[in-house]
Design a protein around this nucleic acid. Structure first.
Lengths: 149, 149
DNA sequence: AGTTGTAATGAGACTGGTTCTCATTCTATC
DNA sequence: GATAGAATGAGAACCAGTCTCATTACAACT
């Protein structure tokens, strides 16, 4: 998923956001952010430690919690029970997901502006009735990917 | 969530659907289906065994897998990492969810017909580009519920 | 009613993904 | 350079969820 920020400034944005919470943008955390930034799709924990053998398991879990807590990454619940991670939409562009129930993979798709307008209006309506205060929304399409048909 | 079927016929529908797969609609399974049918919101596993102490843990997990496999119930991934269960939309009406990130609860909301038309069109578009074959879609609004503000 | 084959059940053992602990090392700040 | 708090990594611990296996229930035949 392409980031809003030019490549160079992503790290700066992340560092700033961590600093705000008295947290440090260390080696391990940067490896994880870089990996998510360069990935085409949300990444599972297993994929992550496989492609980042330098980052120990227990540290990786902690990094994910810290980064999620700081709003830098987002946790996605996939259909196979294993969470996936991606950069939060502050750092990328707003998008939705296709979830394959056969292989568990998650694909990114970018909605059209007109669709998002309709969705935003609808979300506002829904939410009014419940006194619910929305932070974000996600449209997930569940089905079978091209490889799994 | 109100069911499409009148109360009496829900059991018959479920039984039929299980029969089709050579499965039986037994006591424990009926307890679970009845509980989901009478619940206002998707139910976590913990809630379930608490309110159904007659159903042993290992059996309850198995019932859920069987019922999910038969398309009678649906598993929802909530923000706290614990799955929730609800009757599938064949047995209820199509609806979406509000997920509270503070308390983890999930609320049901029914979208307007016009919104669903837009959504269906959009899903079709998205999916065309990927050769993805959709089974269902879900619009989740993440935020804070009235109690948690 | 009896037999047979298959599904269902429940207690408890087991698994493995995730979290926790703790001693150590880093890093920003004074 | 001293200090305090954050970060790290190895391994222990935890626990939700799954599996096993011996037993029981059920449906479909004769």
């Amino acid at each position: 998923m392409r980031t809003h920020a030019a490549d160079g400034s992503l790290d700066e944005l992340v560092e700033l956001q961590l600093r705000r919470a008295d947290l440090r943008y260390t080696e391990g955390r940067r490896r994880i952010v870089d990996m998510l930034a360069s990935s085409e799709h949300p990444v599972s924990f297993a994929e992550m430690i496989t492609s980042l053998p330098q980052v120990p398991k227990s540290s990786a879990y902690r990094h994910l919690m810290v980064l999620e807590g700081a709003g830098i990454i987002r946790r996605i619940a996939a259909t196979d029970g294993f969470a996936r991670f991606e950069l939060s939409e502050v750092l990328t562009e707003h998008h939705h997901h296709l979830l394959c129930t056969s292989c568990g993979r998650v694909f990114d798709v970018t909605p059209s502006a007109s669709f998002e307008r309709t969705t935003a209006r609808m979300v506002a309506e829904l939410v009014d009735q419940f006194g619910f205060s929305p932070v974000s929304h996600s449209l997930d399409v569940v089905g079978h990917c091209a490889d799994c048909q």
